[in-house]
Design a protein around this nucleic acid. Structure first.
Lengths: 94, 94
DNA sequence: AAATTTGGTTTATAATATAAATCGGTTTAA
DNA sequence: TTAAACCGATTTATATTATAAACCAAATTT
């Protein structure tokens, strides 16, 4: 049985990647709301995804307020697709 | 986003349940080989599945040797199906 | 200008997964 | 026989992970 990439096999990180697969980009606040997570948890998990090269994180400003924007990378896309592929072995999709 | 039942969202437990979904029953040694896990790890995870009522574990003998046989329960089946259902939200299947 | 809110990071704690050590019994080989 | 190696499995110790609590700097509100 194929292994399930542990970086993606985590509810919050998977949710983030899943969202980022379907949008051009998403900011911190949006991700926090969509995933219904705490800022601390999200921050940590974004760091992990970013360190792995699965997402790109850019910090900027909107007016005077900071804004952290995330985008999935090509590597991230690939990892996600492989993860889904491995998962199919477990959940036996028709 | 629906939550992913943490009891099933674990590589080894998911593998076990996935196997048990497709066979009438399976013994400890078979599960250990199929999942390529250690006895210790498997034993712990079977306990958790069993305590949750997701599998039924029976200890018996084959000749003089002990044999631990596992079967998925109705509850386990249901939990697995719900898990797969929730997962679909994340992996966006066509 | 104090209090509150916003966007986020750091750090402490709780939960989890995993492997190492151990156990009761069996078979094998001396 | 009996000691060594082996088998099926459990217990326990350790490493890893996830999560929330506490915190921080800047902005906004009162």
């Amino acid at each position: 049985m194929k292994e399930l990439n542990p970086l993606l096999h985590s509810q919050l990180r998977l949710a983030v990647i899943s969202i980022l697969m379907n949008v051009e980009e998403a900011d911190f606040v949006y991700l926090r709301e969509k995933t219904d997570s705490t800022s601390g948890n999200l921050s940590v998990q974004l760091d992990k995804l970013s360190s792995a090269g699965y997402i790109a994180v850019e910090k900027g400003f909107v007016g005077k307020k900071t804004r952290t924007v995330c985008k999935i990378t090509e590597q991230g896309r690939k990892a996600f697709e492989e993860y889904v592929d491995a998962l199919k072995q477990y959940i036996n999709l028709k």
